[in-house]
Nucleic acid binder design. Structure first.
Lengths: 340, 340
DNA sequence: GATTGGCACTCGTTCGTTCGGAGTGCCAGT
DNA sequence: ACTGGCACTCCGAACGAACGAGTGCCAATC
């Protein structure tokens, strides 16, 4: 019995604290929520919760504040997922539908996420590793300079310039083009790369042009630089931190500058529609001990890439999680459609 | 004579204020700079400068602070451009040389600018309008779905998908490809667009495939969405504002979210290697009344696009201007090289 | 006429003090 | 197990005094 009430108290404290940004005391708690007990009772519960590490007191004789552990319990057990409202869903869908290409999808996702959650939004570009090769195009700019264009199923296009030692006439070019396409088109990118390697090795001695082109393609395919790209938006929402500039905003701004750091923050894409919540010190960075990350995967199997938001540990987890999930879902759908 | 000293006083005040971030008084001024006069004399000069609107007093009996007008005079007449040091130049060149494609050039420029100036850096992507068509490629993904790839002299690649009503065989495709390339390659983008239009109109009735492809190309060429892209970096440097969060940082963060706003901020690219400085209220936005913009054009004729930095009016203009100019120069060179 | 030293005055900043209130912990009573 | 009462803590706002940097002005000087 009291156990149930204690959880209710924890939930109430989290909700109040998120709403008011101020430590919450026993009296305010009974008034605001329909707890039919006296403040003194609540005080006992709060003392117990503090004992167990779910709450903390900024100072003696101040109200209580949830700890990371408290938020964790809240997120794990006390959250009732509130689905997005119909108009919200429609707004998301409409806005994302307006996208004209992959870049645009990513940018729009960032915007819509930032707007919905009023936090800093982060969207990772679809990773190369999961996508398949849609087409390879070879364009002779001059007789001995070749533009190699790699078109992926996600809509991403990589291009590279290749300098050839010897000229290549139209027929040779066409032959080479059809050979690499035959080997790679439709394949997952890793498989395509090995298939292309085989192409060269199966034929000794391979013509230098073939070698050069294949080399470039393989390099483009395994170029993890592109894997590391992320889009960031909603930094203006940091203004709401206001207080705690040095402890919260500055390190976050620094983190946002570094793509690599951001990717580690987003973490591994979680599959199965689950939304990952990393609270405060659970994350990989010391300096970000008062920020949380709410993220999830998107794309087929939710494994294509990750998106999410970064915000203060003191955030409205239920609606943030709902927003992140909803956006991920719509993005997945749109990418899927564009793929037909 | 006194006129000369007054300007020296203004310069000294600007320099001291930029360095210390505090209103500067007459006594400190004589001590720090080798002015061989007494504080009282300086006070008279300062009173005169204030009268003329170059200085302001935050409060009675506080030191003086430069006004926008004061900074303007400083920038226009009191600045001796200090060139970048040799190691700095080398660092810029080296870092930018590592770029692999257009995107990378832009991103690296932003980084290097942000690092050099310790301000927020903004780099506009090369505008379509000034670039020329390097090549057009048509790829048949299926018999009736065509991928149109537009390759520009700056290295930018635009691609569009075209659905055809009727199938197109290889020969027809090749013919179409060579015709559009003949018409457009090497042309400035606006001219290329009209040339392509003429192609369709010169031949009545034009085959539907031709019409569709040309339509798409023209659309891609006149797509100003791509003109609007900018890269932003160094937001972490905002942390140095520290004070004046609401008045300075918040509106700036908001501005940085909006590409359109940013482009207006950067303003027209100035030609001839000149660096534009927009100080405080000289800019187009009320809320950014305490931020300055230092920008310049880059690319051939410095007219391809703009880059620059945004920071507090209280900034080190000489070295910032030097850095902006140096980076613009190197970026121009690199783009030019990649174009051969 | 420009420069200077002197002097009274202004005003923001800092620091200690006070005071109220919100909140707690504990205890005795139900 | 819950509740009312009570003493205690401590934060934060409010107040005021002391301080000091800086000014403006004036009479004296070069």
């Amino acid at each position: 019995m009291q156990e149930d009430r204690r959880l209710a108290v924890l939930r109430a404290i989290v909700e109040d604290y998120v709403a008011t940004e101020e430590p919450v005391g026993s009296k305010a708690l009974v008034e605001r929520h329909g707890l039919n007990v006296s403040p003194a009772t609540i005080r006992n519960d709060m003392a117990a919760l503090e004992e167990e590490g779910y709450l903390a007191q900024p100072h003696t004789s101040a109200g209580r504040v949830p700890t990371d552990k408290g938020y964790r319990l809240f997120v794990d057990r006390l959250t009732t997922v509130k689905p997005m409202s119909a108009p919200e869903r429609r707004a998301i869908a409409q806005f994302l539908d307006g996208a004209v290409d992959l870049d645009d999808v990513v940018h729009r996702s960032v915007r819509v996420l930032a707007q919905l959650t009023r936090q800093v939004a982060v969207v990772q570009y679809p990773t190369l590793s999961r996508s398949t090769v849609r087409h390879i195009e070879l364009v002779a700019l001059t007789p001995c300079r070749l533009l190699v264009v790699l078109i992926l199923s996600t809509g991403r296009v990589e291009q590279r310039l290749v300098e050839l030692d010897a000229d290549l006439d139209e027929d040779e070019l066409a032959a080479l083009r059809s050979r690499v396409n035959l080997a790679a088109t439709g394949q997952q990118i890793a498989l395509a790369a090995t298939a292309l390697q085989d192409l060269v090795e199966g034929e000794q001695p391979a013509p230098p042009a073939t070698v050069a082109v294949v080399e470039t393609l393989v390099e483009a395919m395994s170029d993890h630089r592109s894997d590391e790209r992320v889009a960031v938006g909603g930094t203006a929402n940091l203004a709401r931190y206001g207080d705690s500039f040095d402890t919260a905003v500055r390190p976050l701004l620094e983190a946002l500058e570094e793509q690599v750091v951001l990717l580690r923050l987003l973490g591994e894409a979680t599959s199965g529609g689950a939304v990952t919540v990393r609270i405060g010190t659970e994350g990989p960075f010391e300096q970000l001990s008062s920020t949380s990350v709410v993220a999830t995967g998107y794309g087929p199997d939710d494994a294509l890439a990750s998106l999410g938001i970064v915000g203060p540990t003191r955030m409205d987890y239920p609606s943030t999680m709902a927003a992140v999930r909803a956006v991920a879902r719509y993005v997945s759908r749109i990418l899927d459609e564009g793929n037909q």
